[in-house]
């Protein structure tokens, strides 16, 4: 048994059984009719919806909107998070003053800010961007803080011995030593920004994007379009995450590889 499972192509084949059975069950539900038939779009219509969206529809503009929303949010929230996290770790009084406030803000579920922001800046794209930025802000902030605060004393001492100025200490020791955690924060921030983009698009339904398309499709009871959007969301999210990890690996090539 185990010998059989150790062949990679056999494993891959067996791995297809569960999704395959699921799809067959789905197809049967779709063709059975009845109360739930509406919810189970037949597979051929999902395929058709994909072609329709990709060729004539909004699939690529949607991908671009969601992607640019996530990346803009990451740029804004990530930059603020890194700057503030690093500043708080270097200058502790700032940490003492801001930490309780930031912790309080962090406790509120992210989407819980939407009604308030709706009243303040309206239920438009601005609100979406603020929520996405906020979602990327906290992971980068916390990781950057930990990164700089956790720089080993022994490295700082080397700087002392060679008479480093504060700027040299920051540029040559604190920043590179904290870089692994800063990048971890950005990676988490990207994942959060991606989720927050989809979520705010579903909830507010403005400005285009995969979430907006899902929301519209839900109102039109088009499960086929929803499925296409979900699949694209998963694939795109997976891809950008992979690219980001690649970038991280390149930037941290000075680290000993694991194992």
């Amino acid at each position: 048994m185990n010998a059989l499972l150790s062949r990679s192509w056999i494993r891959a084949l067996i791995g297809l059984i569960a999704p395959g059975l699921f799809l067959i069950w789905w197809q049967m539900q779709a063709q059975a009719g009845g109360a739930h038939a509406l919810a189970f779009a037949p597979l051929q219509s999902v395929g058709a919806a994909f072609v329709e969206l990709a060729v004539r529809g909004s699939l690529f503009p949607d991908m671009a909107s969601t992607l640019s929303r996530s990346l803009s949010g990451l740029a804004i929230g990530g930059t603020l998070g890194i700057a503030l996290g690093v500043a708080m770790a270097i200058w502790r009084p700032l940490d003492r003053v801001l930490n309780p406030l930031l912790q309080a803000i962090r406790q509120v579920p992210l989407m819980g800010w939407l009604p308030l922001l709706g009243l303040w800046v309206g239920t438009g794209q601005g609100t979406e961007l603020i929520v996405v930025s906020l979602s990327a802000f906290f992971p980068t902030l916390l990781n950057s803080f930990e990164g700089v605060a956790g720089v080993e004393r022994r490295f700082v001492e080397v700087g002392q011995i060679y008479g480093f100025t504060p700027l040299q200490r920051f540029r040559l020791i604190l920043l590179p030593a904290a870089m692994p955690l800063i990048l971890t924060g950005l990676t988490q921030g990207l994942a959060f920004a991606w989720i927050a983009s989809i979520a705010s698009e579903i909830l507010l339904g403005v400005g285009g994007g995969l979430g907006v398309t899902m929301q519209l499709a839900q109102m039109q009871q088009r499960i086929d379009i929803i499925l296409v959007a979900i699949l694209v969301t998963a694939a795109l999210g997976f891809t950008i995450n992979r690219l980001f990890l690649r970038l991280r690996q390149h930037l941290l090539r000075w680290q000993a590889p694991l194992r």
Binding site: I198, L210, M214, A217, L227, A229, A234
Partner: peptide, 10 residues
């Protein structure tokens, strides 16, 4: 890989 929130419309 799918954000849980994306299952909401479905």
């Amino acid at each position: 890989q799918v954000p849980v929130i994306a299952f909401v419309p479905m």
